[in-house]
């Protein structure tokens, strides 16, 4: 296995996903297979090749610093699962 269970646990944590033991096994196999497949790239000589940053040759795409009307708060919060006092409400954030 090129990807270990520990790896999968770690990336599930970073991704904020819970995995059952079964899922952990399944994803470890799946990710290992895909990573093995992707490892074919390690055979290609990429010395001195610039990574593609953008497929189009774009640069300096800017916007003028001019204020537009913002949205109504009701609209902004319309899809929020829980709100209070004009804000989105979440469980207590522990500093």
């Amino acid at each position: 296995m090129s990807v270990s269970k520990e790896d999968v646990k770690h990336i599930a944590n970073l991704s904020k996903l819970n995995l059952t033991d079964e899922e952990l096994d399944k994803y470890t196999t799946d990710l290992s297979n895909i990573v093995d497949f992707a490892n074919e790239l390690s055979n290609i000589n990429v010395d001195g090749v610039k990574p593609t940053a953008h497929i189009l040759d774009i640069k300096n795409v800017f916007r003028k610093d001019e204020v537009d009307a913002s949205y109504d708060r009701e609209e902004i919060l319309k899809n929020a699962p829980s709100k209070d006092a004009g804000c989105i409400s979440v469980p207590k954030v522990v500093e």
């Binding site: 990807v3 790896d7 770690h10 990336i11 970073l14 990710l31 990573v35 992707a38 790239l41 390690s42 290609i44 990429v46 090749v49 610039k50 990574p51 593609t52 940053a53």
Partner: peptide, 20 residues
Amino acid sequence: YVLSSGYYDAYYKRAQQVRT
């Protein structure tokens, strides 16, 4: 996984090079 610390160069960066 491919972006996580220690794997970025081997996967993401290399993939963008192959993309070139």
